[in-house]
């Protein structure tokens, strides 16, 4: 038995010695014919220390948006939030998610509800950069915000407050690829 182990060891050693001349990054191409595993998260896996933070990176740094970030990850739409954009994300706070009927978030986070979750989340994203000032202008001109899920969200101004799709905008944060408008409600897509 010991001999067997020794022999195995020697052969392994030889194989590795033999391969050692081929260092570099071309070492694992024989593992699979598909190379998609090299970039599992798409653009979301990229970061550097000089670029301004994008929507996902800003959200990840906010303690009020841990539910949103978890939901984005569960829905597998991280790469959408780091795209060149420009994009506006209406970002419900943790409290907004907590206000949903009990068990809603837990149910949505289940793998079998991934596409439903993605649909709900993309209803919170719109092409273009709409900060508070721009939203007020939209309201004044009677224009609606068209979301990535296909809904039109009404923009209303009440005194100093701005509402989008019934959710109150608490703050606007400029990011590298668009705007995060923090909102106090989850904006559920209209039933069609």
């Amino acid at each position: 038995m010991r001999i067997k182990i020794f022999v195995f060891f020697v052969i392994t050693l030889l194989i590795s010695a033999c391969n050692s001349g081929d260092e570099g990054k071309v070492s694992n191409q024989s593992a699979s014919n598909s190379f998609e595993q090299n970039t599992p998260k798409g653009q979301a896996s990229y970061s550097d220390d000089v670029s301004a933070k994008n929507i996902l990176q800003v959200a990840e740094g906010s303690k009020d948006h841990t539910t949103l970030v978890a939901a984005v990850q569960a829905a597998g739409i991280e790469h959408v939030l780091v795209n060149a954009g420009p994009l506006t994300v209406f970002a419900p706070t943790n409290a907004a998610f907590d206000a949903l009927p009990e068990g809603t978030v837990e149910t949505l986070l289940k793998p079998e509800n991934k596409s439903k979750l993605a649909f709900i989340l993309t209803n919170h994203a719109a092409p273009g950069s709409f900060n508070l000032k721009a939203l007020k202008k939209e309201a004044k001109k009677g224009r609606k915000i068209y979301t990535a899920a296909g809904d039109y969200l009404e923009v209303k101004v009440d005194g100093d407050d701005v509402y989008v799709g019934g959710a109150k905008v608490l703050a606007s944060i400029q990011t590298s690829n668009g705007v995060i408008d923090v909102v106090d409600k989850v904006i559920l897509p209209k039933e069609k």
């Binding site: 081929d22 570099g24 990054k25 071309v26 191409q29 190379f35 090299n38 970039t39």
Partner: peptide
């Protein structure tokens, strides 16, 4: 195989 750099990997 020796000149193939898989998608997403870098040249040496």
């Amino acid at each position: 195989e020796r000149v193939f750099v898989p998608p997403g990997e870098y040249d040496e």
